[in-house]
Design a protein around this nucleic acid. Structure first.
Lengths: 125, 125
DNA sequence: TTCATTTCTAATTAAATAATGAGTAACTAA
DNA sequence: TTAGTTACTCATTATTTAATTAGAAATGAA
């Protein structure tokens, strides 16, 4: 994945919003495609790269690797590597990850019960 | 804003994820830039287009108009237009919007207390 | 020796999203 | 009659994000 340009309005606005309210930073992480699904997969016992890939049928390697990296960096999951061949790597939720998962469940229920979701992908305009 | 291409993997994956878990649809809405800020502005009493624009210093007309349209379409805010000149339009949160705002507050607190947010904008890789 | 396995990375291309800049309607005040 | 106000829309461009394709390291099995 490529670097961001740090001299654009786009970038400045993101920084502005993150400083304004940290929710923006959290949402910015949590809304990346596949990321909550990866988190839930691990919570549900698909703790290896390959398992997650099987569960999430269409996820690409690039994105899966990236999402695992992000979740790890933000302290939501931990990674354990065993020195075997072929490699074995296992992931699990941290306390923080479990807490987030609960909050996301609440959001999910809200979506199902209290909102008219328009079904399949917002068409702007 | 332009139309989406409906024959891409990108689009198909989004539909796949939305069908898998409605959280994805909700996040897809709620994570658009400025949208939660617009919601909170209205909740805090900036109920007119112009007020919101002043509060959110750097938001563009295109995006603000779009976010108001989305929030309205998803039943999170209501719009009241008065036939005056210059036009007067007022927005307010629906019950659903208030509920969402509460959930977002919880998420925000989680972010502040239980997570090491890396501060200002994720640099992937 | 060649192939397969797992967990990735790197470079490129495609698509989505946000920003920019201009313009509109309908009236009012100067 | 001209300028000013509010709440927008439209077309274009810039930027970000996701997908595609290829490949690598480290070993064991055939």
């Amino acid at each position: 994945m490529n670097k961001r340009k740090k001299t654009s309005t786009n970038y400045n606005n993101q920084v502005f919003l993150e400083n304004r309210c940290s929710l923006n930073e959290l949402l910015n992480l949590v809304s990346r495609r596949w990321i909550t699904d990866v988190l839930f997969c691990i919570e549900d016992g698909s703790i290896r790269y390959k398992n997650i890939k099987e569960d999430l049928e269409f996820i690409s390697d690039t994105v899966l690797a990236d999402r695992l990296r992000l979740l790890t960096r933000y302290g939501l999951i931990t990674k354990t590597s065993y020195k075997e061949t072929p490699p074995r790597v296992e992931y699990s939720l941290t306390e923080s990850g479990k807490k987030l998962s609960e909050l996301l469940d609440m959001l999910c229920k809200f979506g199902e019960n209290s909102m008219q979701l328009c079904s399949s992908s917002i068409t702007i305009k």
